[in-house]
Nucleic acid binder design. Structure first.
Lengths: 337, 337
DNA sequence: AATACAAATGTAACCGGTTTCACGCAAAAA
DNA sequence: TTTTTGCGTGAAACCGGTTACATTTGTATT
């Protein structure tokens, strides 16, 4: 019983496709007898029109793409949830891609979305090509896109001309570091990604700002730069903890890094706050609920997802409006210093 | 510069649409001069064909739908990741929906997917209508779908005729409870969802199986049944902990429930394992990494996502093959008893 | 040189909808 | 009664592709 089409309905009702279409869309007047007859058949045959055909005819799509680098990271899970809730309310449908923070997949996703002629997209670019060759390819593809794009969370220089929504990471990192300084710490470490990534640079800058403000020298030996994985952070943290001259406090630059750090801490039989103080970027829900005393910068990813989708809807409505960059504030949650 | 179409290319190359199509698809022989000329124009204009139009012409879609009840729950995040990785490899594109475990949204998602004439779908039904009126509506819609559906994780009786992949929750709960019994516990509690939900029933049954096996009476006063939220589990756990005659061990039936329990524990100044022993269903990654000593039943959601997508691909290839139900084993991870 | 066959390409129909336009007909206005 | 108006409807074109079929052209066979 292949899918029922508008032609089937028309034939059965003894009218033209056009009339059925009119019934479907209430777009023009239809005699009430005809209308009822057609509606009855539609109901009986459980017909509803193909969105694909419809979009093709209309010339526009109701699909919105979303590309995130790590779909099973709760941060992006929440982002997705926020975006999806607003999409729902606006009859937009989400096409999801997980780039694994990998330029090639990123490119493939972009390409797929382009070829679907999606209405717009929410995009967190993969970081791993921040300075690479691949980047050019992606950039060129995006430029040729002619589709509204809203950047989320990451703000590569090459994408300046797009709307975007970001967190005030520099400020937050400044404040977090400042909190540590004001609590009396002089030797403050940081575990971050390497500085070829935009976000890592921004976060590092915030950290540095605070040190400068309080006349504490920036010391590379307290900086551990790698990637955003638990494993690497764990290695770095272990190394840090085993040093004679180790920091008395540390900031960790994303939730995976925080976890790597905490793991190392635990394996060295050390206690959070007791032996070394930490403020992490992004909450770790379980730890927070369980009352582990883990301090963190609280960034509201659901909010970001919602706002991003709203910005996209706005952009779709006003294609020529001025480029908009939104910066969301975060809150520093101190559980135990 | 609206989108370039095949007609534009054809006109510019001085050939017919058909020829351009042939170049695009290598579907028939084209003179090498013509081919090169066309290809050059395609490159120059950055043209690539509309997937929407293509699918309409082909009569099939390359979209696969996926509906999950809680997109920001890491369990479903991993499910999504697994599914998405297999989809990628097979040139399938994912349309994502978050039902919020709510029948109405569930219905809307199903409807949208139907209207997109998706190729197939992965589906974790919302639980909240397990016995309700809404259920009938959803069931009827699904029946009329005529699209391959693979159930994931939840197995409502009404959907028997679909392929599905599930965890051996009854067995796992049995084993977990058994572990507690063998460790000497007689008073074993359970925090679960109410038994009008299929999964809750299955889990409860596993718990009960173990008690029976070891001749321990099933006692309702040790059973706390509510929903799968942290908040409710927290209330239940608090109540439990404040009772004179409280269990010495407890099984918690999903990750939210585990967190609610752990929160209550912490607020009552009690220690996991020390004061009351617990085995939870599903890992809580942060706790595990941090070495909290939280015991759990490890269900591999990534694996489930992958397998589900593979089953869907299989089903799409062999529409008349026998219905397939796959049950995945889980592993019990004991950190501290 | 005539015939056969393959390669290259165009024409037109089709996928499942929407929409413009024109026409017939009935009711309202002149 | 004639003219105007407008409602209800169908035919046909269109959205952007694919493909069956027909036609033209060039090359190999006899």
């Amino acid at each position: 019983m292949g899918n029922v089409t508008i032609t089937d309905i028309a034939r059965e009702a003894g009218v033209s496709k056009a009339t059925v279409s009119r019934v479907l869309n209430r777009s023009a007047s239809v005699d009430s007898n005809t209308r009822e007859r057609v509606e009855e058949i539609i109901r009986r045959k459980k017909y509803s029109p193909s969105t694909v055909a419809r979009n093709l005819a209309y010339g526009i799509s109701s699909i919105v793409g979303i590309i995130v680098p790590e779909i099973d990271n709760p941060f992006f899970g929440e982002l997705l949830r926020g975006a999806s809730s607003i999409a729902d309310k606006n009859d937009l449908t989400l096409m999801c891609f997980n780039s694994d923070d990998n330029a090639e997949k990123d490119y493939k996703a972009l390409k797929t979305l382009k070829d679907y002629r999606v209405r717009g997209m929410l995009y967190t670019p993969a970081t791993d090509y921040d300075t690479s060759e691949q980047r050019k390819t992606v950039t060129k593809l995006i430029e040729s896109l002619d589709i509204p794009v809203i950047l989320m969370d990451r703000e590569p220089a090459a994408f300046e001309r797009y709307d975007g929504i970001f967190f005030e990471d520099r400020k937050s990192m400044y404040e977090a570091t400042e909190k540590l300084i004001l609590a009396g710490h002089k030797k403050i470490g940081i575990i971050n990604a390497t500085l070829d990534r935009g976000l890592a640079r921004i976060r590092q800058a915030g950290y540095r700002d605070a040190l400068e403000k309080y006349d504490i020298p920036y010391d590379e030996k307290y900086c551990y730069l790698g990637d955003y994985s638990v494993a690497q952070a764990y290695r770095h943290a272990s190394e840090m903890l085993e040093k004679e001259d180790r920091p008395t406090a540390v900031v960790t630059c994303n939730n995976n890094i925080s976890m790597g750090f905490l793991k190392a801490l635990q394996e060295h039989d050390m206690k959070i706050a007791g032996d070394i103080v930490c403020i992490g970027l992004d909450k770790i829900e379980a730890l927070d609920i369980v009352g582990s005393g883990f301090n963190y910068i609280r960034r509201d990813a659901i909010e970001m997802g919602k706002k991003a989708m709203e910005m996209l809807i706005h952009r779709m409505a006003f294609p020529t409006a001025a480029v908009q960059k939104v910066y969301l504030d975060s809150e520093i949650v101190i559980r135990k210093l």
